[in-house]
Simulated scan of single mutants.
Amino acid sequence: MAQEFSVVTQSMVGVTITSSANTFGSERRFPKDITIADLKGKLVLLTGADVGSMKLELYTNENKLVCPIDNDNALLGSYPIDDGMRLHVIDPNAKLGEFEDVSKVEKFELSAEEYAKRGDSVRAFKERNKMGRFREITPEEKQRQEEEQRVKEEQDKAAVEAMKIGDRCEVSVPGQPARRGCVKYAGLTEFNSGYWVGVQYDEPVGKNNGSVKGKQYFQCPDKYGGFVKPENVQVGDFPEEGFEDMEDDEM
């Protein structure tokens, strides 16, 4: 008895859609049993092209033209289309980028005063529910916050007073790798409240040359300086990391 065989092909195909009206493309999947007429209807929403004048071309992923897709009654799968190919939409009446020019879009603008008067805004919701900056702070909570701030400032002051200019240190800021350097400044600053430590890093991983907002707190090469809070600075025996250390690690 002869055994029957059948060829099974994918029912969906993934292609890149480009258009003569847009400078960008998008990836979409379509069923192979969709008619070209129905496909054009979907492409109107993607490209803004006019379905009445729309023309389609099929390209390989190497940008070589395979064939035009010009029979509205045919099925998409009747054309030699495969995953990764490009389907180019041509609209003779469209200009390249005309749907991307946001300068032609009328913008809705609302002044701060008008926004504050609205009762359906996020601001109004937060104000009604005492959330965020509209939250009422009790006298006890305010006193607790002030006490925590005072203790924090005393701890920072003690930390910077224990440091000496030239001390080797390691800076560990949350979310960043540890960086080594030396202490070049420790104390109050004009650019922000509280106590700060000025560090000259061993590598150009800083943000300045020891100067912030026009005031020079210490001297160092550009991009080697930075200011961090005292709790992120540990003073100790932190030798400069260099090529010798790397060679030792490889031995």
Rank of each mutant, 00 (worst) to 15 (best):
L87Y: 04
G84E: 00
K207A: 14
N71S: 10
S211P: 01
V233H: 03
V122R: 09
Q200W: 08
Q10H: 08
G77E: 07
C67P: 00
G52E: 09
M251K: 10
V89D: 02
Q219A: 15
T9G: 08
Y79W: 08
I69A: 03
I36Q: 04
E113V: 13
F5W: 11
C67E: 13
N192A: 14
V7M: 08
G242V: 07
K104R: 14
M131P: 03
T47A: 09
N22E: 08
G48P: 00
A37Y: 08
V197Y: 01
E141N: 08
W196M: 06
A37G: 04
T9E: 06
V228S: 01
G198A: 02
D222W: 07
M251Q: 05
E170H: 03
E127N: 09
R29G: 09
D38G: 03
F238T: 09
G226T: 02
G226K: 00
Q155I: 14
L110I: 15
N73A: 10
Y224R: 04
G52C: 06
E231Q: 13
E100H: 09
P204M: 02
V13E: 03
R135Q: 11
E240K: 12
V151D: 08
I90D: 02
V89W: 01
D249H: 04
N129E: 08
T9S: 10
V105I: 15
D222E: 12
D249L: 14
V160T: 04
C182I: 15
R150L: 15
G77C: 04
L46R: 01
D91L: 04
S6E: 06
V235S: 06
D167W: 03
K117G: 10
C67I: 11
M12L: 09
A21N: 01
E114A: 15
K223G: 02
I137H: 06
A124G: 01
Q216A: 09
Q145L: 15
F24N: 05
E153Y: 11
E190Q: 14
G175V: 04
G242A: 12
I137C: 09
K229Q: 14
N232E: 07
K32P: 05
D202C: 02
P177E: 05
T189D: 01
P92E: 05
S53Y: 12
L45P: 01
N61I: 12
F227K: 05
E240N: 06
C182R: 13
K126Q: 11
E250K: 10
R144Q: 14
H88F: 09
D248H: 11
L188S: 12
I34R: 04
R144C: 08
G84M: 08
K32N: 10
I69L: 12
G242R: 00
L76Y: 04
Y59S: 01
S26H: 02
R133I: 14
K130G: 11
E170P: 05
Y59H: 13
T189V: 14
D237G: 07
G25L: 02
K40R: 11
E170Q: 12
S103F: 08
K104L: 14
L87V: 03
A94K: 00
R179Y: 05
E231V: 15
N232T: 10
T23D: 12
V212C: 06
T189A: 12
G181A: 03
V199F: 02
L76K: 01
Y115A: 13
M246G: 01
K157S: 11
D245A: 12
K64C: 05
K229L: 10
Y201R: 06
V233Q: 00
F191H: 01
R168I: 08
D82C: 11
